[in-house]
Design a protein around this nucleic acid. Structure first.
Length: 545
RNA sequence: GGCCUUGUGGUCAAGCGGUUAAGACGGCGCCCUCUCACGGCGCAAUCCCGGGUUCGAUUCCCGGCAAGGUCACCA
């Protein structure tokens, strides 16, 4: 068989010599130990927590080591393309401080580009042509129907499905048969002529999983599709070689195609990057758990968290605690340190699938928001409200002084201890609502309507805006006594039967009357912020019902 | 089904031959307290199963089992 002639027939024309590409994309001059990692999404534009998870790992490893993180777009499948997707990905990741050094739409050094795989067609074809010349790749004319039928037959016989060994029909086509098919204008793909034997297993060091066993590949996989565009596997080998990737951190779902990639790198004569296969983020579904999926779990899109108003740092902290098992301990000791100071390592990444835990995220969110200054909190809420807030909520920002005082109270600023009431922007806006809007719904009172009336009237009679907190509270105790409630909690607890309730119940009535809620921060302060007129109006409104 | 990966409380997990088997979230209880939140204290709850090796296995070996992933001209 004249492979050279076949290659020329299949991919006519003069391609640069292979060494040209080596010179075009030379090894990077980086310090020893610097890792080059990448994110290589297909341009669907949809990013979810699972993608963020892997993105943070790649970003941290690259930048911790003084290396490079780049963005490559895997657009070999046209069906997946969505307009504006690349910008959306960049923006979504930027929100979490993930910045690329190179890549699609990034600008900067273009040496290792282009970053869209469709624009790299010539490179792929040059290498495919080379493989054909070497007899390591061949055209396959099998139709989709034939392949389906074959798969069915294999499955029925309980054999491994696929295009390999004796099933690789086009692998041993004669020269005459090939040219006859070509002359007949039959569409074809280019397949790798695999030399592997799956019975042979090799030890392989995975940066995350440790030593694993990998069988050899024997599938004659498609490397060039009938449209002349490579498949993922082939593009991966070419691109990660010429973009000089040193470490590929990718999802566990790729582990089973590792044999293919190993064979590809070997036949191309490229040095392999190191690999780390990270576990996926899982979701509990009934009895079982499964990998997060973009189709089935829209509530796990990054957009969802932005809309809820999760503080980006909180999401990142949560991801890091899942990603590196020693991060949480470090963070507990260094709550003020920049996240980037943490020594992130692939080796500390979890080997098993992780269930996404909203309770944990919420807890972290509360802690993160509690660290903010009032000004930062206002800025955060404003940014959120501008995009997602209701018109009523936007009005809160008109009286910034009141807003600041309300937030300071809810965050415990000025008091002895910080409060942790606020979880997300939307929750926070809802939490402070009563400062700006008269409550229309009231939580249930525990005291009878008659007693409530007496207490509210009594309060209105003695209320003085100028009273300090202590005076205000001692008046509350007097009201309690006058109306048959215990002034001291201790007295009440000692003999509950002797009273209608305690001063706590008195406070609760006023609290619900002014805020609508049974649980709030300090009531006296709330009244100070609301102002005398508003307090009297709200209580009177309830008195007259 | 084949192959690969993974199995420590409800969740995330440390430990990797001898430990009262850390810690965090969640749950429950108590204290603090005008409510809540914060904080403090405490409780319940875990080594997938079966064989080996060993004086001794959560830790090492073998075998099960379970879960996840993957078997495309998708990535």
């Amino acid at each position: 068989m004249n492979y050279r002639a076949l290659a020329e027939r299949l991919l006519p024309g003069n391609y640069p010599s292979l060494s040209t590409y080596e010179e075009l994309y030379p090894p990077r001059s980086l310090a020893k130990g610097a890792e080059v990692t990448r994110l290589a999404p297909s341009p669907t534009g949809f990013i979810h927590l699972g993608n963020l998870f892997a993105a943070i790992a790649n970003e941290r490893i690259a930048h911790r080591s003084g290396g490079i993180l780049y963005l490559r777009i895997e657009d070999t499948d046209l069906k997946r393309k969505v307009e504006g997707a690349v910008e959306a990905v960049i923006k979504a990741l930027d929100y979490f401080d993930i910045r690329f050094d190179e890549g699609a739409e990034i600008g900067g050094d273009e040496t290792y580009g282009p970053w869209y795989q469709r624009q790299r067609a010539e490179i792929y074809r040059a290498f495919v042509k080379h493989l054909i010349e070497e007899g390591r790749a061949y055209p396959c004319f099998c139709t989709a129907e034939q392949l389906d039928a074959m798969r069915e037959e294999q499955t029925a016989r309980k054999e491994v499905p696929g295009y390999y060994g004796k099933y690789a029909r086009c692998r041993n086509l004669t020269e005459e048969e090939i040219y006859a098919n070509l002359d007949a204008g039959k569409p074809y793909v280019i397949r790798l002529r695999s030399m592997g034997d799956p019975e042979v297993k090799h030890k392989f060091h995975d940066e995350i999983k440790g030593d694993i066993t990998v069988p050899e590949n024997d599938q004659d996989i498609v490397i060039l599709k009938s449209d002349g565009i490579p498949t993922y596997h082939f593009a991966h080998a070419i691109d990660d070689h010429f973009m000089r990737t040193t470490l590929v951190i990718r999802g566990e779902e790729w582990l089973s195609s590792l044999p293919i990639h190993i064979e590809l790198f070997e036949t191309l004569g490229f040095e392999r990057p190191r690999y780390g296969h990270n576990c996926s983020l899982m979701k509990q579904e009934g009895e079982t758990r499964r990998k997060l999926s973009k189709r089935k779990d829209p509530e796990l899109s990054l957009e969802y968290y932005r809309k809820e108003g999760y503080f980006p740092r909180a999401v990142k902290v949560y991801m890091l605690t899942l990603l590196n098992s020693n991060f949480e301990e470090w963070y507990l000791k260094n709550p003020e340190a920049p996240l980037d100071d943490f020594k992130f390592t692939a080796a500390k990444m979890s080997k098993s699938g992780t269930l996404f835990d909203l309770d944990k995220l919420n807890d972290i969110s509360k802690n993160e928001l509690a660290k903010l200054s009032v000004a930062d909190m206002v800025a955060f809420l404003k940014a959120w409200a501008d995009e997602f807030g209701t018109p009523e909520q936007l009005k809160y920002f008109e009286d910034e002084q009141k807003l600041s005082r309300a937030l300071a109270l809810c965050m415990g600023i000025g008091g002895k201890k910080r409060r942790k009431d606020l979880t997300t922007a939307s929750q926070a806006m809802n939490f402070i609502k009563f400062f700006f809007e008269q409550p229309t719904a009231f939580e249930e009172f525990r005291v009878s309507a008659a007693d409530r009336g007496c207490i509210m009237a009594d309060f209105l009679g003695s209320y003085c805006y100028e009273d300090d907190a202590q005076t205000w509270f001692s008046k509350l105790k007097e009201i309690a006594s006058r109306n048959g409630f215990a002034a001291e909690m201790k007295d009440y607890k000692a003999d509950p039967g002797a009273y209608k309730g305690s001063v706590a119940d008195v406070a609760e009535i006023l609290r619900i009357a002014t805020t609508g809620k049974a649980n709030t921060p300090d009531l006296w302060t709330i009244m100070q912020i609301l102002g005398e007129e508003e307090v009297r109006a709200r209580i009177s409104a309830l008195l007259n019902v």
